[in-house]
Amino acid sequence: MKEKHSQTVRLNEVSADAVEQVLDFIYTGKIRLTVDNVNGIMKTASLLLVESLLDIISDFLVETLDPLSALHLRETSRLFSLHKLEEKVKECIVENFGVVSTQEKFIEISEADLRKYLSLDQISASEDDLVSCLLIWAKADLSKREERFLSLFKLIRLQHVSVEYLVDTLRNDPLVKGNQNCCDLIEKTMHFHSKPEGIKKQSKRRDTVEEIFMSATTTVEKITQPHVSHESAVVLHGDKLFFFGGYLNSNNNIATNSIISFDGREWKNEGNMIHMNSTHNYVTDKCNHWKNI
C-alpha cells in the first residue's frame, strides 16, 4: 500500500467529524449516536476495524428497526457484518411480512431469500398477500425470473388463498395463465374447494401457538377514548370483549401488539402480545389462557 511510504493516511468517503467521534470513542469508550450521524460513524468504524463500536451501532440500529426500515437495515447488516442486527431484521421481516413485502425495495431481494420466506410456516401474511408479492417480484424482472416462477409458485398454499382472489385475480393473471403447470395447480385447488375428498389438505401457516396468560394481578391501564382498530382478533371472554392487535386506522400498515378490553363501560389496556399481529384469530379456554391460531 502506498500509505506505508507516506506520513499521511487518507480516509476517503468519511467525514472529519465522524473520524473525530470514532477516535474519541477509542480513547474514552463513549459515543453519542443519532439517526443523523450513525451512518458516517458506522462507515468510519468499519474502515478502522473498531469492532466494539460496531457492536454498539448494531444495538442502536436494532432499536430503530421497524417493518418499514427492515429491508434497508437488512442491507446495512450484511454490508457491515452486523450479525445481531441481521438476526433481528430476519425476525422483523417474518413477523411483519405482509407490510415488508409492500415496500419498494422488496423487489430487489434474491430468489433464494424469497424462497426461504415462502417456505416458512411462521410467516406473518395471508396466502393472498404471499402470492401477490410473488407476482410483483417476478414481474419486476420478468426476463430473468419467469423461468423460476413455477418453482416459487409451488410454495404457495393455494388451498388457503381466498376463493375470490383465486378465481377473479390469480387465475386471470397473464403470468399464471402463460404457465400450464400453474393453471393445473389452480384448477386442482378449485376442485378441492368444490369436492375436497381424496385431495391432500395443505397445512395452514403459523402452526406454532403463541400463548398469553392473563392473571388476576395483571396491571391494566384505563383508556379514556373508545378503542377503534382494524383487522384485530376479537374474543368474548367472560363479560369482556378483547381486541388483539390489528391496525390503529385504515391508513396504517403497521400492526400493533396491544391487548385492549371493553366491559360495556370502560376500555382498558390489558398488556401486549409478544408479536405484532393482524388478520389473525384467538381462542380462549375457561382460564385466562389465550392461543393464537
Results as ranks from 00 to 15, higher is better:
211 E>Y: 10
29 G>E: 06
39 N>F: 13
58 S>C: 06
274 I>A: 09
133 C>R: 02
52 S>A: 11
250 S>H: 13
236 L>I: 11
180 Q>Y: 12
195 K>H: 15
21 Q>M: 14
207 D>E: 15
225 Q>C: 08
72 H>R: 13
33 L>W: 11
293 I>C: 03
233 A>G: 09
269 N>G: 07
196 P>T: 11
288 N>Y: 05
33 L>V: 08
248 L>V: 09
1 M>T: 09
212 I>E: 02
184 D>P: 00
7 Q>P: 01
28 T>G: 11
291 K>W: 15
167 V>N: 06
216 A>E: 11
228 V>D: 09
138 A>Q: 02
83 H>N: 13
293 I>K: 08
53 L>F: 11
209 V>C: 11
146 E>M: 09
229 S>V: 12
242 F>I: 03
174 P>K: 12
149 F>R: 02
260 I>G: 01
128 D>N: 15
92 C>E: 03
8 T>E: 13
121 D>I: 09
105 K>V: 01
116 K>D: 11
130 L>N: 05
10 R>F: 10
1 M>A: 14
251 N>M: 09
135 L>Q: 04
176 V>A: 00
291 K>A: 09
145 R>S: 07
210 E>L: 10
208 T>C: 14
223 I>M: 11
53 L>D: 04
98 G>Y: 02
254 I>V: 14
199 I>V: 15
164 E>L: 15
35 V>W: 12
92 C>R: 00
113 D>S: 13
83 H>Y: 13
111 E>L: 14
57 I>E: 06
207 D>C: 15
23 L>Q: 08
28 T>F: 04
187 E>G: 02
55 D>C: 15
135 L>E: 05
61 L>D: 00
117 Y>R: 05
204 K>T: 04
289 H>Y: 04
160 H>E: 07
224 T>F: 15
14 V>C: 07
9 V>G: 03
245 G>M: 03
73 L>R: 00
92 C>I: 05
241 L>Y: 05
86 E>Y: 10
185 L>V: 05
40 G>I: 13
1 M>W: 05
98 G>R: 13
31 I>G: 10
23 L>A: 12
173 D>T: 00
247 Y>M: 01
190 M>Q: 11
288 N>M: 10
258 S>Y: 03
30 K>V: 13
223 I>C: 04
14 V>D: 05
